[in-house]
């Protein structure tokens, strides 16, 4: 039986300032995932809905099957930046 390779992160850092990567992580973590890698593993898909003009995440399916919709523009407020986790592999 073929085992699905589960990639685990090696380290985690907390950002100090907002950036597009922080925004990306914030959106995934709001929906209950570590990041895009875990999302793709859980849903066994390569596709993530994104806004065409800037590539921000548009729609995510939570683990319970509900949908989270995200804005065209920045959503991560300043007070949430330091709570976001940036994983590296």
């Amino acid at each position: 039986m073929a085992q699905v390779a589960v990639v685990q992160p090696k380290s985690m850092t907390r950002p100090k300032v907002w950036s597009e990567e922080v925004e990306e992580a914030y959106r995934f973590q709001l929906a209950g995932y570590r990041d895009a890698i875990e999302y793709k593993q859980v849903h066994k898909t390569d596709h993530v809905d994104r806004w065409p003009h800037n590539g921000y995440v548009k729609k995510l399916v939570r683990r319970d099957g509900c949908f989270y919709y995200y804005n065209k523009t920045r959503e991560c407020p300043d007070k949430e930046i330091h709570k976001t986790k940036m994983y590296s592999y």
Partner: peptide, 18 residues
């Protein structure tokens, strides 16, 4: 919509795709 009463109170969880 899924009714949630948690601390992350700025989003609606939709049960169906909009």
């Amino acid at each position: 919509i899924a009714l949630e009463h948690d601390t992350k109170g700025n989003k609606i969880a939709w049960k169906v795709e909009i």
